[in-house]
Design a protein around this nucleic acid. Structure first.
Lengths: 246, 246
DNA sequence: CGTGAGTTTGAACCGGATCAATTAAGGTGG
DNA sequence: CCACCTTAATTGATCCGGTTCAAACTCACG
């Protein structure tokens, strides 16, 4: 393999990622256990349900999705993972992965052997703290999605989704208002518990309202404050909307 | 305070809980950092969103629920917590709790100062592993719920809910087939993303099918295999059902 | 080019929400 | 201990948001 390893200290994601707060010898300890396998093409899988858990992964570039599969083959997308985000925590619990992790475009990842990582965590308190933070963040993300699936209507879900993606791109140094969605409408629908057609209709709807501009996967958010308003679940906006738009 | 502290070594939950795999000096290290505040009455809160994160809690007896609250006061129940289950992980991420943790009946908990726990984890590898396992388990639980909210219909959600509760009671040494629900129909509905009336109707429906016997909060599961069949999302059962029941 | 996956839009249908009314069960104070 | 009151649960009737089915369209790619 003739790939040059990107050191954490040189990585532009270092402030979103595990190395946050690490320097010098401690950072080196982390760098030593990181492997960087060759990039994966769209549709390749890092792991399948039941695979033995050995590694945590971090997306370095590209995008991944993780999804659970039921006995009957139905699948529910649990999350989309952008650069700097952790993948594989579902395997910690009982030593086997429960999800599938699949790339959505050409993607490269870092690979962390979990037992080695735990060793370093035992020595480096800052790293321990950082890993725990990322684990907990994953819980919050899931809870956010639970709220969307449990209490929001289609309009609110799609608005929340767009805001979420926009915010995460922004954190990574990209534009918050103009970006390219890495996932299909069908993925979005699966993720949000909606039919493809409903997602598409909501996009059209926002476009009619001149809140976003949509052409296929290219998105321009024209009025982010409006999207935020929509995701507020109270009745206030709903009334306003009726007053202004009907 | 005249409460006698229950040592982990004497606790009947020790094999579900953090002490699993610990003994001797290591167990003692854990016991030393555990506090046991006085029992809480129904409806009391361990913490609110925004409260400074200091403790993880473990339910010792009773039941708790955790829920997120939106800007407009809507709430989504994230989980019900039985004895031996961890509460408070949502606070790790940024140092503040994001949920509310509320008791559903007279409940006592153990209280673990998180920084002290992290110290002990650094020294005791088995404990580190166990905490990570429980954190990951929480992720799996959320993902299970996501699948229910995203892909299951009302019948399947309620069936899955009953099976889940039944199984968790069983793990704690209670009957899997006959138990007392600690939560109201409204809580169940909130949790499953259904209206109270729908939950109630599904209970009646299962009763008509002689799959469960329901009287208020007292539940007897007569045909667990049937509930399991229902939660299988494939079309097979749906066709069978139509053949047999119409 | 042509082919197939992804997307959009329309029309009909249905599962679960909502509204409304009744019943049952704790809980409280006399 | 009982009458009263409040909260929880059940059941029926109606309504609507989102699904499903169907068809046309667009674009990337061999």
């Amino acid at each position: 393999m003739d790939l040059v390893k990107v050191l954490c200290s040189d990585c532009r994601l270092r402030n979103l990622c595990l190395p946050l707060g690490l320097a010098g010898k401690e950072l080196k300890q982390l760098e030593e256990i990181v492997k960087q396998p060759r990039p994966l093409q769209r549709g390749q899988r890092l792991y399948l349900p039941g695979d033995k858990f050995h590694y945590l992964f971090i997306v370095r570039s590209g995008t991944m999705k993780t999804y659970t599969t039921t006995s009957s083959g139905q699948q529910q997308i649990i999350g989309f993972h952008l650069p700097g985000e952790l993948v594989g925590l579902d395997g910690v619990s009982d030593g086997n992965y429960t999800c599938t992790a699949e790339t959505m475009e050409m993607t490269s990842v870092c690979e962390l052997p979990f037992t080695k990582l735990e060793n370093v965590m035992g020595q480096v308190r800052v790293l321990q703290r950082q890993v725990h933070r990322l684990m907990s963040k994953e819980l919050l993300t899931d809870q956010q999605l639970l709220l969307q699936l449990g209490k929001m209507n289609a309009e609110q879900r799609v608005a929340a989704f767009l805001l979420n993606i926009s915010c995460r791109f922004h954190l990574r140094g990209f534009s918050a208002s103009e970006f390219h969605l890495p996932m299909t409408r069908s993925d979005i629908g699966n993720y949000l518990g909606l039919a493809v057609e409903t997602v598409s209709r909501q996009f059209s709807h926002f476009q009619e309202m001149a809140v976003v501009k949509v052409s296929r996967k290219h998105i321009i958010i024209q009025k982010p404050e409006f999207l935020r308003l929509i995701t507020n679940l109270d009745g206030k906006y709903q009334q306003e909307k009726e007053a202004t738009h009907c």
